[in-house]
Nucleic acid binder design. Structure first.
Length: 493
RNA sequence: GGCGCUAUCGUCUAGGGGUCUAGGACGGAUGGUUCUCAGCCAUCUAACCGGGGUUCGAAUCCCCGUAGCGCUACCA
């Protein structure tokens, strides 16, 4: 049997991390099996579906680097791949079901249904459609129609028996038919409901495996019943678990970023997002955890997907991100940092290639996210530097700062080479001459040159800041220290 | 309420009757390296939800609880 899977989002918002993981698992399974990955848009909810959401979902999938073999944009043998364009299929299948006695029109109004459920709730009964329009006579139907009522089409659910399947990630699951009711197939406006459209499309698109979130487990028995009524063998089902927030509740906006491209804004690289998502609910062996998409496509196994829900852990995501950042080639890393910075108001594209490479090397392993480049690299990105209060306060408490920084400015000025090496030699020589530890001098220089207590290596910093600006910052800091430090008086002769 | 799913360190997980004094990773802690930080190295921290079975033996199988989550729409 050839493997055909699909990711079928409904365009009612951004691509959520849960959806992204479902899409990923589908692609991974398809590729690992030499199968086909289909993208289908389930927009039968006219109320909530929007063009903008469809676009956002595409954008999210593309950002991640996912690729599908059939879909609205790439076409394919079983199109169209947008449900609102597949009306003819649903109509045909509905007619089949009506003809075989598996479906019937129901004319209840929303108010009548509400009343029915209320009454059931009052009696502590399970709330489900009681089948009141199941066996209407033609005359009764005509009467409703004449009264202007538009029917929905309901599925005639068997009153007894069980429906069961062997879920790839959860094993055997079964439902008693009696807990199901005559669910709606086609709404009064003619649009199919999820359960119906889904089955029709999976059938028509020859889907072999349905990989989706476990919020669909309770839909599965209904769909299975439909396959049976239609006389078809159902696909194999695999229900992955939910992704939770740190509080153990279903991940949502209040946990922060949930749409995948929001993570791009946070400085997460798509390779890392994919890797992390794959690990949320799947593992190769519990030992290896760093994978590229291509590697995942080789080693992924649906049966190794974990049935229990997983908490989305940002710390781990950032760690995975840091690992992927390191794996990038230097050119790629320069490119991505440059692009990220540009999107956040810092243009380093005009700098020399040598400067940019040095900048990225200086940032080095400090980058957990691309955004860290803004923080660690700020000293090199802006002209005017306001020292952080805490760092400055500490400097004020140190002795002889003006002499040292002033001396360093002099030394740098008279360093003919101005390379990282020469700067180091110059600085260390000065420290020796002043009789202080190099670390002392460097610490003061760090605050003067970067405004912070933490920065990349000081000689890289000097080189990146440039001779003029470095001298300038050192002198300014010296002057300001003299003006503000209680220790300044004793510093003067 | 009904139905369903899930249950190993704080988090992601390995482990599926003996090899488990439960392994790896993130996080945290400590020490080393270093101009700070990061990194790297070393060490440490911390778990089988509870109770009953089955068995010579259970984290692993069964049952019952409990908890969390999902579904219970003319949403998907």
């Amino acid at each position: 049997m050839s493997v055909r899977v699909r990711f079928a989002p409904s365009p009612t918002g951004h691509l959520h991390v849960g959806g992204a993981r479902t899409a990923l698992y589908n692609q991974l399974f398809a590729r690992s099996q030499g199968g086909v990955f289909v993208l289908r848009i389930e927009d039968t909810d006219a109320e909530r579906s929007t063009e903008a959401s469809t676009a956002a979902i595409f954008e999210g999938l593309r950002w991640l680097g996912l690729t599908w073999d059939e879909g609205p944009d790439v076409g394919g043998e079983y199109g169209p791949y947008v449900q609102t364009q597949r009306g003819a299929f649903y109509e045909r299948y509905r007619n089949t079901l009506v003809a075989s006695g598996h479906a019937y029109p129901a004319y209840d109004t929303p108010e009548e249904l509400d009343a029915m459920r209320e009454a059931q709730a009052l009696r502590q009964e399970p709330q489900r459609y009681d089948g009141r329009h199941r066996s209407l006579t033609q005359a009764e139907r005509d009467a409703f129609a004449a009264a202007g009522r538009l029917p929905v089409w309901r599925f005639k659910c068997p009153a007894s028996g069980v429906v069961a399947w062997d879920d790839i990630v959860r094993g055997p699951i079964e439902f008693q038919n009696e807990v199901l009711d005559d669910f709606v197939l086609v709404r009064s406006d003619g649009l199919p409901t999820y359960n119906f459209a889904c089955v029709v499309d999976d059938l028509e698109m020859r889907i072999s495996h349905v990989i989706r979130g476990d919020d669909h487990i309770s839909n599965t028995p209904r769909q299975l019943l439909l396959y049976a009524a239609l006389g078809h063998v159902p696909p194999v089902f695999a229900h992955a678990s939910m992704i939770l927030g740190p509080d153990g509740k279903r991940l949502s906006k209040r946990h922060g970023a949930t749409s995948v491209d929001a993570f791009g804004e946070l400085g997460i690289v798509p390779e890392a997002m994919l890797n992390f998502l794959a690990l949320l609910g799947w593992s190769l062996d519990g030992e290896h955890e760093l994978f590229s998409l291509a590697e995942l496509e080789q080693v992924f196994q649906l049966a190794r997907v974990n049935p229990s829900p997983a908490v989305f852990d940002t710390d781990k995501l950032e760690w995975v991100n840091a690992q992927h950042l390191r794996r990038l080639t230097e050119d790629d890393r320069v490119e991505r940092v440059t692009r990220f910075l540009a999107q956040h108001g810092y243009d380093i594209s005009t700098r020399s290639p040598e400067w940019r490479v040095t900048f990225i090397r200086a940032l080095g392993d400090r980058l957990r996210t691309l955004r860290d480049a803004e923080g660690y690299g700020r000293f090199a990105l802006v002209d005017a530097l306001e020292p952080e209060p805490e760092a400055w306060a500490e400097l004020l408490g140190k002795p002889e700062v003006a002499v040292r920084l002033g001396g360093l400015a002099e030394a740098i000025m008279s360093d003919p080479e101005f390379t990282q090496q020469s700067l180091e030699a110059t600085t260390r020589a000065l420290a020796a001459q002043l009789g202080v530890k190099a670390g002392e001098l460097i610490g003061a220089a760090r605050v003067a040159l970067t405004g912070r207590k933490v920065s990349p290596g000081i000689f890289e910093v000097m080189w990146l800041v440039g001779r003029e600006r470095a001298i300038d910052r050192l002198r300014q800091a010296a002057a300001r220290w003299t003006a503000e430090s209680p220790l300044a008086a004793s510093d003067l002769p």
